[in-house]
Amino acid sequence: MSALPGTSSSWLRTPPEGKRKNFYQNVVFGLTILATIVVLTPIVIVAGYVVREGLSAITLEFLTEGPRRDGAEGGIWPVIVLTGYTLILVVVMAVPFGVGSAVFLSEYARPGRLLRLINLTIINLAGVPSIVYGLFGAAFFLDILGGEKSLWVVSATLALQALAIIITSARESLLSVTRGIREGSLALGVSKLRTTFFITLPQALPGIITGVLLAISRAAGETAPVIVVGAILAKNVSLNPSAVINERAQVLSFELYGRITEGIGYPEERKWGIALVLLTVVLIFNLSALFLRWRISQLGSVRRN
């Protein structure tokens, strides 16, 4: 702050101890920037390393052919396809129940002690370690329902975790729809269900889709529950969807883990290749979710203007 020359407003100038204060301030602020940089470097390292090491493994053969000689040659095509099937099954199982539950919780359930308890449970379910979902999947689908270790059991287990994510995010975006436009519709004599379908859900849809994309991304990268309910390494199987549902699951995340731990003599380069494919799949869903969320915030700010 500079005072006019010739005036006696010296009190407007920064006193010595103020300069020291500003120095500390700059040091602390510098440290926060440093922390931010440290936090963000792993993304660059992981992505950079995976791309650098993995790119050479990515050939047409690697992506489109089945494995030969226990996977040491050939490609991971069956794993890619079955990962796709798994994710589709996850969506089919988790989305209707997830969105249905969210509508129930935000539009129909009466506030009270019970709803509060349910909300607390749901919020915390998204924080339950993924391996616990794996154990639950094993106990429920294998032991109680008597299922075999198979693609549908893996999908159903991953769907449980996705369910928790979808309910939480869908409920949040439903609740963020303003009461005003709901009441506007109800006051026209439009029933609650129709208001939900024609006003509330369309409004919440981008937010719900964001949640679904994040849940898919998570399911694609999740490894621990897959280990627990059992998957196998790359193997040539029929890729007919109806037959493969009861076959043992092959998914990218498990393929990577399996090759890391068991793959003695498995070419290093191919491990990085799998990692690169996995990272790409996960990032596609993740980035679309981020993009969609960004679009929502853009639309939101336009709407306010």
Binding site: T178, G180, I181, E183, G184, S185, L186, A187, L188, G189, V190, S191, K192, I199, P202, Q203, R303
Partner: peptide, 19 residues
């Protein structure tokens, strides 16, 4: 109540046009 609201309309404090 739904049928009633169709006959008794309401305009709110804050304008609430649908999106």
């Amino acid at each position: 109540a739904v049928q009633l609201r169709r006959h008794v309309g309401m305009v709110f404090q804050k304008p609430n046009p649908f999106p």
